[in-house]
Design a protein around this nucleic acid. Structure first.
Length: 376
RNA sequence: GGGGGCGCGCCGGAGCUGGAGAGCCGGGCCAGACUGUAAAUCUGGUGACUACGUCUGAAUAGGUUCGAUUCCUAUCGCCCCCA
């Protein structure tokens, strides 16, 4: 596994690169659809590959460990085989669930005790267990087990938290380096920068994380409710410090505008539930702006949803049809909207790559961001 | 033709048999939220107005009463039973 930078912008920190894994190459900057439970919700694998042209998808350690359980995944020969997806996979470690299930867990030095959100049963994740589970799941890129702090987070807590995350990080690498992949291909462990919205903590964390010899470096603990400006500020501070020749993965981000702004700051990889969750809730990203397809104004609009995106559903089907499917709560509406939003995100990344190649990224980004945020 | 029952919000249901909430529960409708997925979810609004308040309202028109959605009379509409 390796990463090559093909071109660097001169007017921003944006870069064009290729990340090679044993399941194929990933062109960066890239958006990775989230498939928490072994599925990108509402999307079939064929569509993911052929329509959306996803190059890599996510899975989640905590959710897959609870269901279907790692014994079954091992028996199936790993997650790739279980879900029949032969391209790269990245798994989150369960660190995000430390944040999102905060009312059902307890953190200690050793790890985190969870009450299952499904049946209330007790479970325990530690850095070692999270690595072991991710060895069994068999993702190409696996994430360190960290604490994702909430926003706002007081300085004292955030400082203690990065110290814990850094100790956990070493334990993750120790376990990772003393074990092997189970299925004959390579895995890589990605460390995660934390530090909430504090400049000195972010710098410190970025320095500690950079000391690890890794292929991918992640930035976590952002897009948890802080203003976008603070997110950009923290990202800029961290990308200054992280190794320049390795991909940076900004976890959980974000809106189309967030992606373009972060690419300009030197971020290469993104994931977010926004395109899929918002699609299921009727919010659609188009080349002209954001549409809430459930709104009455679309009821009789027979124009295609978005002619400018190369998407089999939104080129063909009208806004009125999408509206109708949502009004009648038909499942096809959720599928079509999810397909569209993901196609939109992946095409946005492809455009960004082309503009970086052309050397016109900066001006294109600035003119495009306003359009993306318009509310139709 | 005779007897009985029922009519309040956009719709359905609950509740009220003298002290009326512009008001309960669903649904619909109108909006909003969603950022390493406890999310096909959640939140708010849905009589009028001169709008932190005021007014009108229980099929329609009268009546009794300090006070009526509730009791009485008539009319209209719907449902059930008998002929």
């Amino acid at each position: 596994m390796n990463f090559t930078i093909e071109k660097k912008c001169t007017d921003t920190s944006a870069r064009l690169g290729i990340l090679n894994t044993d399941h194929g190459s990933i062109e960066t900057p890239i958006f990775m659809p989230v498939g928490t439970q072994g599925t990108v919700k509402c999307i079939y694998q064929d569509q993911l590959k052929n329509d959306i042209k996803a190059q890599i998808i996510l899975g989640n350690t905590y959710h897959l460990y609870l269901r279907p359980g790692i014994d079954l995944i091992e028996k199936a020969g790993g997650l790739h085989k279980f879900i029949a997806w032969d391209k790269p996979i990245l798994t989150d470690s369960g660190g995000y669930q430390v944040y999102s299930l905060s009312n059902m867990r307890k953190i200690t030095e050793e790890g985190v005790s969870f009450k299952s959100h499904i049946d209330g049963s007790s479970h325990f994740l530690s850095p070692e267990i999270a690595v072991d589970i991710q060895r069994v799941i068999g993702a190409d890129i696996i994430m360190a087990f960290d604490e994702c702090t909430p926003y706002p987070c007081d300085y004292h807590y955030a400082k203690k938290s990065i110290q814990l995350t850094h100790r956990w990080l070493q334990r993750c690498f120790d376990r990772f380096n003393n074990t092997n992949g189970k299925y004959g291909y390579n895995q890589t462990l990605a460390p995660i920068v934390q530090g909430s919205t504090y400049i000195d903590l972010r710098k410190k964390s970025a320095q500690v994380i950079s000391e690890q010899d890794a292929l991918v470096y992640a930035i976590g603990g952002l897009s948890v409710g802080e203003p976008a400006e603070e997110m950009y500020e923290m990202t800029a501070i961290v990308t200054e410090i992280l190794p320049q020749d390795k991909p940076r993965y900004l976890m959980g981000v974000g809106t189309p505008a967030n992606l373009l702004e972060s690419i300009a700051l030197g971020v290469d990889m993104f994931d977010c539930v926004m395109p899929t969750r918002n699609a299921r809730h009727g919010l659609i990203f188009t080349s002209e702006g954001i549409i809430n397809i459930k709104n009455a104004k679309w009821k009789t609009d027979l124009e295609p949803l978005d002619k400018n995106i190369n998407c089999t559903t939104s080129n063909v089907h009208s806004r009125a049809y999408f509206h109708h499917l949502f009004r009648t709560k038909e499942m096809l509406g959720l599928q079509m909207a999810s397909l569209h939003n993901l196609t939109f995100y992946l095409e946005l990344m492809q455009m960004a790559r082309e503009k970086i190649k052309d050397g016109t990224f900066f001006q294109w980004k600035n003119s495009f961001v306003t359009k993306l945020q318009a509310r139709l």
